[in-house]
Computed example of a mutant assay.
Amino acid sequence: MASSSRTTGKAPKSPESFESLARRNGAAEILQSYEKLSWYSFQRCESLTQTRLHFQNIVAGFTDEDEAAFVHWKTDNTPRTKPGEEAKSGRKGKERVSLGGGGGDGVAGSSTQKPGKEREKSYSAGSASGSVKKKRKSDG
């Protein structure tokens, strides 16, 4: 009789699976370390706040499907260009600059010079034809 009322010293069995418990403990460990949280944030291409919310949902016991229902931000999956590399356009070669004022070889919009060089060229041509030169602050 006395043996049936005794406790065995073991904790009652948890209804949670071992994998779920290990996942929740891992998420809690990540939340406790700012460095780990920032690494996961970089890996997931998210802000720290978004990553923190993700791991808080894991600790709370939400599944990936539950979490997907709560996500309200849009993801931008457009490919990024590497530093120093320009975005690829549909046309090959240099794009032409049209300044609308003409110049160059006389055909409108056919100039391949940069806008700054075009302005210098037309400025010097205007001063050579006898028009008044614009004063600069450094001229006095």
Rank of each mutant, 00 (worst) to 15 (best):
P15K: 12
S17N: 01
E19P: 00
E19V: 05
S20W: 05
S20Y: 05
S20H: 07
L21T: 08
L21V: 04
L21Q: 14
L21I: 10
A22S: 12
A22Q: 15
A22L: 07
R23T: 04
R23P: 01
R23V: 00
R24W: 02
N25K: 13
N25E: 14
G26A: 15
A27F: 01
A28F: 04
A28S: 09
E29M: 10
E29L: 08
E29Q: 09
E29A: 12
I30Q: 00
I30H: 02
I30F: 03
Q32C: 08
Q32L: 10
Y34V: 06
Y34Q: 15
Y34L: 04
E35C: 04
L37V: 04
L37Q: 11
L37A: 08
Y40H: 09
Y40N: 12
Y40W: 09
S41V: 01
S41P: 02
F42I: 09
F42V: 10
F42M: 11
Q43N: 12
Q43W: 09
Q43F: 07
R44A: 08
R44I: 04
C45E: 15
C45H: 15
C45T: 14
C45L: 13
E46G: 06
E46V: 09
E46M: 13
E46K: 13
E46C: 12
S47Q: 11
S47R: 08
S47A: 05
L48R: 13
L48F: 03
T49N: 09
Q50M: 10
T51H: 00
R52A: 07
L53M: 15
L53I: 08
H54Y: 15
F55R: 00
Q56D: 04
Q56H: 09
N57P: 05
I58F: 01
I58K: 01
I58H: 02
V59N: 00
V59D: 00
G61K: 01
G61S: 03
T63L: 09
T63N: 07
T63G: 01
D64I: 11
E65Y: 11
E65A: 15
E65N: 14
E67Q: 12
E67W: 08
A68V: 03
A68Y: 04
A69Y: 06
F70C: 09
V71R: 15
H72Q: 14
H72W: 09
H72P: 06
H72C: 10
W73V: 06
W73Q: 07
W73I: 07
K74Y: 03
K74L: 12
K74T: 06
K74C: 06
T75V: 15
T75E: 13
D76Q: 01
D76I: 02
N77F: 08
N77G: 10
T78R: 14
T78Y: 12
P79W: 10
R80S: 09
R80H: 06
R80C: 14
T81Q: 09
K82N: 08
K82F: 15
K82T: 13
K82E: 12
